[in-house]
Amino acid sequence: MRSIVYYVREFLRPEWLKKFFSVKTAPLTTPAYFKGYPTLTDKECTHCLTCMMICPAPGAIAVLRHKEQWAPEIYPGHCIRCGLCVEACPEGVLTSGRILDVTSRDKTAFSSWYRLEVDDNLCMRCGNCCVSCPVNREIDPQLAGTGTSASDEVIMRIEGGRVTILHEEKCTGCKTCETNCPNRAIRVARMVEGVQGGEAEA
């Protein structure tokens, strides 16, 4: 009998009733080290578009000009918060969570280059790619017509009726060859590799 009275009194306490019928935990807040939407730091954007090139989500980031000043803008309905733009930016314009701290501590960065690929079945050996390439024109001003060249320093030239790629590393990724190819035989691909230890170049 005494125990029943004890329990009834225990359960009629206002504190107990309040605790029982009200919310126990407030909605949890997001810790500061979680990757959120990237925000701008006070560093100056150089309009290199590395962030836009590495972004995996369509339409998530755009580099826009605000009165003589370029700055990236993130669109929340498109951004997947992967943080690749934060890691890839060479200037540290964007920040998100502790990505910048980790990349500076581990000395990680992205290195990128361009790969040229010619599909021999589609290529009709017209030489348009070799002639239109602005890097080729600068190295060998004589390069014209069929795309043959006496210089060994050009990116690509026609050798024995086929396109031969000599210096892939000189490609700047302008894709002029792609737009001038009548058959879409030549393809320019941007390759990205994660590196550690400070040997990264752009």
């Binding site: 369509p58 339409g59 669109y75 309905g77 498109h78 951004c79 997947i80």
Partner: peptide, 12 residues
């Protein structure tokens, strides 16, 4: 999620 707003990675 992003999908009902923009289609996210499927919007291609």
């Amino acid at each position: 999620g992003n999908c009902p707003i923009s289609g996210c990675v499927y919007a291609r």
